[in-house]
């Protein structure tokens, strides 16, 4: 089954002894079957919080507002039992660290059999056959032998492939990959990007890729949401984001990437300042303390979402449609 995913006015707070951390504020996103969606932004800006909310896996101290609907079903209205079913069957999360996704004392094969618990129609041998086929598909040679390996016996790149295979075995319609290549070398990263790109040709669901690496987003995604301090500040087609960015933060982020410059730079560009304290988010624009274009309303009035085209949005007082 695959359907569209929508989050509307989604906010998440984490309750802590030092107050509430407003990690996500008024986020609207949508994703449709067959699309690869990129979520990009600096560390701490709420990317993982967003995808964990979408996957319904937020920790107990999280409070959520707004709505998430998948395939027309409002997730908040489901009872806990149905939410769990949905999580197992419909949404697969490949997490930031592929090592933590696996139990160290069970073989890869045994764990991948468990990932198919929803397939009551299949016996163990049939499940193992599906695993072997899936491991082959993610580029693991010698799949039969690899199934008898323990997680630590695989390299980082292989574990990441196995994690992707595991996600695909659940037959879910929504595959979320949180920083799928951050822990990998550039050669492995290129291979994983290629693998995800191959998969999308046959995979009919939604793929959401979270990364702080702009190159990875540019290589993989159809549409991109740029996050800053818990808000989506700009969203649009990948080409619009990389070639016609309108939000000052998106522009600054792109300008900082040393991969864009081939001639040696004497000074690398940076974004001075740091993320605001999310226990007390600024009342105006979240980016105002670091923005070089800030003007009168920015410090006190939250900017509206400005629609620049059917698919391009920026949240800023200085952009005009």
């Amino acid at each position: 089954m695959s359907g569209s995913l929508t989050a509307s006015d989604l906010s998440v707070r984490y309750e802590t002894p030092h107050g509430s951390v407003h990690a996500l504020r008024h986020v609207d996103i949508e994703a449709h079957p067959g699309e690869v969606i990129g979520i990009v932004g600096e560390s701490g800006c709420g990317k993982s919080t967003l995808v964990t909310a979408l996957a319904n896996l937020l920790p107990a101290n999280a409070r959520i507002d707004g709505s998430i609907s998948y395939n027309g079903v409002d997730l908040a209205k489901l009872d806990a039992h149905h939410q769990r079913l949905l999580r197992g069957d419909e949404i697969a999360l490949v997490s930031q660290d592929p090592m933590t996704a696996f139990n160290p004392v069970l073989t890869i094969g045994d764990q991948l059999v468990d990932f198919q618990h929803h397939r009551k129609d299949l016996g163990r041998a049939q499940k193992r056959a599906r695993i072997a086929a899936m491991l082959g598909r993610v580029g693991i040679a010698d799949a039969e032998r690899r199934m008898d390996c323990y997680p630590h016996e695989l390299s980082g790149g292989m574990r990441q492939r196995v994690a992707i295979a595991a996600a695909l075995l659940t037959d879910s319609g929504l595959l979320i990959a949180d920083e799928p290549t951050t822990a990998l070398d550039v050669t492995m990263e290129a291979q994983i990007i290629h693998l995800l790109r191959e998969l999308r040709r046959e995979y009919n669901g939604i793929i959401i890729v979270v990364s702080h690496h702009l190159g990875v987003i540019a290589e993989l995604c159809d549409r991109v949401y740029v996050m800053y301090a818990g808000e989506v500040v700009e969203g649009g087609e990948v080409d619009a984001i990389f070639h016609d960015a309108r939000h000052p933060y998106t522009q600054a982020l792109l300008a900082c990437d040393p991969a864009r410059f081939h001639e040696r730079l004497d000074r690398l560009p940076t974004i001075p300042g740091s993320l605001p304290n999310l226990t007390q988010p600024p009342s105006g624009c979240v980016y105002a303390p670091r923005c070089d274009r800030a003007f009168a309303p920015c410090g006190s009035v939250a900017p509206p979402q400005v629609k620049l085209s059917a698919s391009h949005m920026a949240r800023c007082h200085a952009v005009a449609p």
């Binding site: 290129a190 291979q191 290589e219």
Partner: peptide, 25 residues
């Protein structure tokens, strides 16, 4: 040369077609 080619370029108009090198270290 493969290391340099593997580096993703932050430009969707210049996507790489294939990984420059396959296999593990």
């Amino acid at each position: 040369a493969t290391l340099i080619q593997s580096e993703p370029i932050p430009d969707p108009r210049r996507r790489s077609q294939n990984p420059a090198v396959t296999g593990e270290i």
